[in-house]
Amino acid sequence: MRVTFRVNGRRQEADDVWEGESLLYVLRERLGLPGSKNACEQGECGSCTVRLDGVPVCACLVAAGQVEGRDVVTVEGLADYAKERAAGGGCATHPGSCGTAGTSLDAARRWEARPTDSATGEGAQLAPIQQAFIDAGAVQCGFCTPGLLVAADEMLERNPNPSDADIREALSGNLCRCTGYEKILDAVRLAAARQSEGA
């Protein structure tokens, strides 16, 4: 089957998709977007967390056919998504998921992910949560990082001043085996603090 949907603001078509394929498989193997990680394929680890019409989901649990005509944001588009949100007064997401003053769907679709310097990552424009993960030492092997970033970014959108308990609850669907989570908490606190200072 053919699946047509938007990924990081860009229209994408995937052909010859087998009905059993997940959104994760289509992103990784058909669209050249391997940032979303496959670590369990059963919705336990959160490594493949993407936003589907603004809502965080495990891409491994979404059948490819379900995304027809819908909007997906992956870690590859997170920086532009955050930039657009900042420009739009704090909400880049789908109507209804970010309060009544949110950006319209059309407005949210204005932005498009740009290629970054893929040799070293230098010069890449990062979302505040991405920069905070680097600065706080929240990245070790990095396999859980994309999913955590998408989940944490979504939480900060809903709750700009989270308590530690709020952060833990929001990120409880994302497993990390390297860090013991302390530096991930640091990173989210840092991003929240920078967000409130910069606002």
């Binding site: 193997e29 977007l33 391997p34 940032g35 890449a124 990062l126 680097i134 030492g137 396999f143």
Partner: peptide
């Protein structure tokens, strides 16, 4: 010094090429 990881940016942008990302 607590210098930052040289692979940090690639890892937060999803561009870091893990063995399962090879194509």
């Amino acid at each position: 010094e607590s210098t930052l990881r040289p692979d940090g940016t690639l890892k937060v942008t999803g561009d870091f090429a893990y063995s399962s990302d090879m194509w």
